[in-house]
Design a protein around this nucleic acid. Structure first.
Length: 311
DNA sequence: ACCCAGGCGGGCG
DNA sequence: CGCCCGCATGGG
């Protein structure tokens, strides 16, 4: 879909170090249900009650991001917040590129931003992420949006739905959720939806106190330390958080612990000491690199092989 | 057929 | 506390 078909340009951002593609291919909550189109470098999604449409043109290290929509101020501030456009990437890169591991990942995925997502959306996405893979997480999350979200835009070619609130989900039945592929996580979803509607206000938690935020989040059923770190990082923008999943654990052991098996606590300690307040950005670059670099190399090899066979 | 995926809660020592 | 296990589902 060419985004420009759906309304006039609301605002434009001229940016340094911004890559729509790397941001939206790096497995963050928005990317689990936003409709990203690599051909036009554009995307649409239901941001609360808004139909968000974005398009980015990138030339070298410079980008022009266009936001479409009539209520200019609302749309542009939403995009600005969600894509963390205030982040000073040059400064952040300087702080985290302390070795070739991180600096090579930055070179490969230059301009990739962390995104700032709605806290409840982030909670649900990462409850679903446990013991799962990214492709299936995307499928399940988009199934949930399709089944329980409400329509924010519709015409004869396109319908866009919003991410359901905890209230909209708390009465979902177990079999309804399992039918969407959630599996054993279904009980966590209904339990978390009820808890976040009735017993805790995610929108009133302070994002700045890392330890306190994390322990509050871990009161939610289905949220352990790793998921709490993901929510702190991508739902609250706490850049100290360092989610330690299987990819990061393997990568960290290989790169910084001489191949030895270590506990997540050791990794957290190292990350805090080494990257400090921007550990979360280092994590996102190492994570995306670990997940995709082998894959990219395989594609390149496959392409070369096809060319050889043609010749 | 077997292994793995952005882990968690519960049970046991 | 720390460790170990089962857990649904689909793709490589």
């Amino acid at each position: 879909m060419a985004i420009a078909e759906y309304g006039n340009v609301s605002s434009e951002f001229k940016l340094e170090a911004f890559s729509m593609r790397h941001t939206f291919e790096s497995a963050q909550p928005l990317t689990f249900y936003a409709d990203y189109n690599p051909k036009f470098n554009s995307l649409s999604y239901g941001a609360g009650k808004l139909f968000m449409r974005l398009e980015s043109k990138e030339y070298g290290s410079e980008a022009v991001l266009r936001v479409y929509g009539k209520k200019s101020r609302v749309y542009s501030s939403e995009a600005h917040k969600r894509l963390r456009l205030d982040d000073d990437m040059k400064k952040i890169y300087k702080k985290i590129a302390k070795d070739s591991h991180v600096s090579e990942a930055i070179a490969r995925y230059y301009g990739m931003r962390l995104t700032l997502n709605d806290p409840w959306e982030t909670t649900l996405c990462f409850i679903i992420s446990q013991f799962n893979n990214v492709k299936r997480i995307r499928l399940i999350v988009s199934n949930i949006v399709e089944r329980f979200g409400s329509v924010v835009y519709s015409d004869n070619k396109l319908t866009v739905k919003s991410f359901p609130t905890s209230e909209e989900l708390k009465n979902a039945t177990d079999s309804e959720l399992r039918a969407l592929g959630t599996g054993f996580r279904s009980k966590y979803i209904t339990s978390a939806a009820a808890f976040c509607t009735d017993s805790i206000d995610l929108y009133k938690l302070s994002p700045n106190n890392y330890d306190k935020l994390k322990s509050k989040l871990m009161e939610i059923d289905g949220v352990g330390e790793k998921v709490a770190d993901c929510i702190a990082l991508m739902g609250y923008g706490n850049l100290e958080a360092f989610p330690t999943d299987v990819w990061i654990k393997r990568t960290m052991e290989k790169l910084y612990f001489d191949g030895k098996k270590v506990k997540p606590r050791d990794i957290h300690e190292f990350a805090k000491d080494y990257w400090g307040p921007y550990a979360g950005y280092a994590q996102q670059y190492l994570f995306h690199n670990a997940r995709t670099y082998r894959e990219d190399k395989q594609k390149v090899e496959k392409g070369k092989k096809a060319v050889r066979q043609q010749a």
